[in-house]
């Protein structure tokens, strides 16, 4: 991705930014790793491909906003979903848009490690190769070919904004038409089940949560200086990994990101026990879309759904 490297070198040289957050080659076959580029030389390390999983905008608000304190102007390499997070931060007054330089990049989707692992039945993948529409997975005693689509994140498969709607520079050629069959297919199908069936699935799924909070910490929308789970005076929720406590954590987190989730899928990828986190977040996204006709992170001038009020809004959720 020479164009990306050149652009970053240029904006560093022009002192347009003090740092650029991008992806570098990771230590595992399917992991890119976040890097903080301050010099033209370091810009050589930048990559972009299907392994660039993380939503790097999350660093803007993490760790007491360390990055915003250390650097005045921050450049970030963004995929579509990542750029939407920056819109979110802007409309929620978390950053000043002019302090961030966005280098947009057309995204064809990123790999979901857990899907890869399932395809090879848990065996270790040591290398891979992309051959047009297919991916060849290689391990010690196997080599398998699969359609590329099978290993992309669910979020990517229903993504409607792969071209970083918000950006200052754009690298490469935008993807043209994006045909998403039905973004809410899984949710609608799940909704058709009986409430007992749905509850059984949610209980079964969330009973495996180990409460490591990786989902919360990678989430760009989770930026509270103090999360409700860390409130212990008085304590808000039980801290055990028992299903009742874990479900409350996930329910509250999902309500808190209602109308704010950009469906980047970072939580799904980060979960060390492969929970189906999107079953909740996508449902909440759908509700917001249907009730308020609002999609998070698209319009930098529009007030967020949960921060505005309109008389014509459906209120049946209040009236029962």
């Amino acid at each position: 991705m020479q164009q990306l490297v050149d652009k970053v070198k240029e904006i560093i040289k022009n002192k347009e930014v003090d740092v650029v957050i991008g992806w570098g080659r990771g230590s595992l076959p399917f992991s890119a790793t976040p890097i903080f580029v301050e010099t033209e030389k370091d810009a050589e390390k930048l990559i972009f491909d299907e392994t660039c999983r993380n939503n790097l905008t999350t660093y803007l608000t993490k760790d007491k906003r360390r990055i915003s304190k250390e650097y005045k102007k921050i450049g970030i390499v963004v995929k579509g979903c990542d750029s939407r997070s920056v819109v979110l931060y802007t409309v929620e007054n978390q950053i000043k848009r002019e302090n961030v330089v966005l280098i947009g990049i057309p995204c064809n989707g990123v790999f979901e490690k857990k899907k890869l692992s399932q395809l090879v039945d848990g065996k270790e993948i040591l290398d891979f190769q992309i051959d047009r529409e297919n991916i060849i997975l290689k391990g010690r005693n196997f080599e398998q070919t699969h359609p590329l689509k099978e290993v992309l994140c669910d979020s990517c498969l229903t993504c409607q904004y792969p071209d970083a709607p918000e950006h200052d520079y754009f690298i490469g050629t935008p993807r043209k038409e994006v045909n998403v069959p039905d973004a809410y297919k899984t949710i609608n199908e799940f909704g058709k089940k009986s409430s007992e069936e749905r509850w059984a699935y949610i209980q079964e799924e969330y009973s495996k949560c180990i409460r490591c909070y990786a989902c919360r910490n990678v989430c760009p929308s989770c930026y509270c200086p103090e999360c409700f789970v860390d409130q212990n005076d008085p304590q808000w929720i039980g801290k055990t990994p028992e299903v009742t406590d874990s479900i409350i954590f996930h329910l509250i987190r999902n309500l808190h990101i209602a109308g704010r989730c950009v469906d980047c899928g970072a939580c799904v990828s980060a979960c060390p026990v492969d929970l189906d986190l999107r079953i909740m977040s996508k449902k909440v996204e759908k509700e917001i879309k249907e009730r308020f006709d609002y999609t998070a992170g698209i319009d930098i001038h529009e007030k967020p759904a949960m921060a505005s009020y309109c008389e014509h809004e459906k209120q049946d959720f209040i009236m029962g």
């Binding site: 903080f36 999350t58 660093y59 993490k62 490591c212 990786a214 980060a270 060390p272």
Partner: peptide, 9 residues
């Protein structure tokens, strides 16, 4: 620590 996001995984 620059890139650590402080989850407990």
């Amino acid at each position: 620590s620059a890139k650590c996001i402080n989850c407990g995984a």
